[in-house]
Simulated scan of single mutants.
Amino acid sequence: MQYKDYYKIMELARDASQDEIKRAYRKLARKYHPDVSKEADAEAKFKELGEAYEVLKDPEKRAAYNQLGENWKSGQDFRPPPNWDEGFEFKGGGFTGGDAGDFSDFFEQLFGGAEGFRSAGTGHRHHGEHLRGQDSHAKIHIDLEDSYHGATRNISLSAPEMNAQGQVQVKHRSLNVKIPKGIKPGQHIKLAEQGNPGLGNGQAGDLFLEIAFNTHPLYRVAESDVYLDLPVTPWEAALGAKIKVPTPEGHVDLKIPPNSRQGGKLRLAGRGLPTRTPGDFFVVLQVVLPPANTEQAKAVYQNMQQVLDFNPRLSMGG
């Protein structure tokens, strides 16, 4: 996937004001509009311009894009940094420049999965002569263990704001957030009146925190179930064994049945995420072969070859 330098596409400096962005778009849109332009690749350039304007005209998308930094070059192979959008507050202005499906993979990777970037914000609500503030959204990452036990975490949030020169700046704040036991990725924590301030004496909006899990060195999560890839020796898989296995709630003794196979799953019922209906904990067996790196080890393998007379490719006619 190629990096898109939206400032270069719009022939702008990174500190351009929002008015300068609008003027640049109008100028370049006239230049590259396919119905009137005589420029080579006018249609492609017009489409690329529309995508750049979709991001830079929106202070939230622009501030999020700016977080990627200035060291990328147009066309450079790009993968978003891990958790690049964590703690970034947005109201969600929706798309106004056409169908987002017409935009590049780069745009989709950054903004396509963010609920607030894809749908219109809540907006102000009338309460007499006052206006309720807009709700805001942010994604935060927690540890798997936080869901098992519950926790209180201090989180840092960032939100864009306009300065007097019409340039986008980022303000920061910190909040203590209670992580409820049993929360799953994709669920939200609602913090009442922690969104955008109201107008007049209007009530502040709410803040919705979308939960994601940090990558864990041992476990992976699917819905409420938790999976562990467990290395076992060939003799443990073949003969059976009793093995001490780590889980987020501590080690358990697990019985490996004889004649277990690579990829076999063993279920520990109810030991997944402690949701209202608890998930399960699955141990996925990974048979690891000892290396034949000594004469003694080679002799063991040669003896197995002679004694077992085993051909795993018989069903393939081999």
Score class of each variant (00 low, 15 high):
residue 99 D to V: 09
residue 112 G to K: 12
residue 127 H to D: 11
residue 98 G to T: 09
residue 94 G to Y: 13
residue 133 G to I: 00
residue 93 G to I: 03
residue 119 S to H: 15
residue 95 F to W: 11
residue 102 D to L: 15
residue 111 F to K: 04
residue 101 G to S: 14
residue 100 A to M: 10
residue 126 H to S: 13
residue 125 R to F: 12
residue 100 A to I: 07
residue 114 A to T: 12
residue 144 L to G: 05
residue 108 E to Y: 11
residue 133 G to K: 02
residue 145 E to T: 09
residue 142 I to N: 01
residue 130 H to R: 08
residue 107 F to L: 06
residue 124 H to T: 07
residue 128 G to P: 01
residue 135 D to V: 01
residue 102 D to Q: 14
residue 93 G to W: 04
residue 121 G to W: 04
residue 122 T to Q: 05
residue 112 G to T: 11
residue 95 F to Y: 08
residue 132 R to P: 01
residue 130 H to Y: 13
residue 143 D to H: 05
residue 100 A to Y: 14
residue 139 K to H: 09
residue 95 F to A: 08
residue 133 G to L: 02
residue 95 F to P: 00
residue 116 G to F: 07
residue 109 Q to F: 06
residue 102 D to A: 14
residue 123 G to C: 08
residue 90 F to L: 15
residue 111 F to S: 05
residue 113 G to V: 12
residue 92 G to N: 08
residue 124 H to D: 07
residue 95 F to K: 03
residue 113 G to N: 15
residue 90 F to S: 10
residue 131 L to R: 02
residue 132 R to H: 04
residue 141 H to I: 00
residue 144 L to W: 02
residue 128 G to L: 06
residue 108 E to D: 15
residue 113 G to Y: 14
residue 132 R to F: 03
residue 94 G to M: 14
residue 106 F to P: 05
residue 102 D to H: 11
residue 125 R to H: 13
residue 104 S to T: 14
residue 135 D to H: 08
residue 114 A to N: 07
residue 126 H to N: 09
residue 135 D to R: 00
residue 120 A to M: 11
residue 129 E to Y: 09
residue 115 E to H: 09
residue 120 A to P: 01
residue 106 F to Q: 08
residue 97 G to Y: 06
residue 140 I to W: 03
residue 139 K to N: 05
residue 144 L to R: 01
residue 139 K to Q: 05
residue 91 K to Y: 07
residue 129 E to P: 01
residue 93 G to D: 12
residue 128 G to H: 06
residue 139 K to F: 03
residue 135 D to S: 04
residue 138 A to R: 00
residue 124 H to V: 07
residue 91 K to T: 10
residue 117 F to V: 10
residue 98 G to V: 07
residue 96 T to V: 13
residue 140 I to D: 03
residue 116 G to R: 02
residue 143 D to F: 00
residue 139 K to I: 12
residue 108 E to H: 14
residue 114 A to S: 14
residue 131 L to H: 02
residue 93 G to L: 07
residue 107 F to D: 02
residue 94 G to K: 11
residue 121 G to C: 10
residue 138 A to I: 01
residue 109 Q to N: 14
residue 96 T to F: 12
residue 135 D to G: 04
residue 118 R to F: 08
residue 125 R to I: 10
residue 135 D to P: 03
residue 106 F to V: 07
residue 95 F to L: 05
residue 104 S to W: 07
residue 98 G to N: 06
residue 132 R to M: 06
residue 113 G to A: 15
residue 121 G to Q: 03
residue 133 G to Q: 01
residue 96 T to N: 13
residue 110 L to C: 06
residue 139 K to Y: 02
residue 100 A to H: 10
residue 126 H to T: 11
residue 128 G to S: 07
residue 134 Q to G: 06
residue 125 R to K: 15
residue 116 G to T: 04
residue 121 G to L: 04
residue 136 S to C: 03
residue 124 H to M: 09
residue 111 F to W: 09
residue 98 G to H: 06
residue 102 D to M: 13
residue 124 H to R: 12
residue 108 E to R: 15
residue 123 G to Y: 06
residue 117 F to I: 05
residue 118 R to D: 08
residue 93 G to F: 05
residue 128 G to E: 06
residue 110 L to D: 00
residue 90 F to T: 11
residue 104 S to I: 10
residue 135 D to F: 01
residue 115 E to R: 09
residue 106 F to I: 09
residue 112 G to D: 13
residue 102 D to S: 14
residue 103 F to Y: 15
residue 129 E to Q: 11
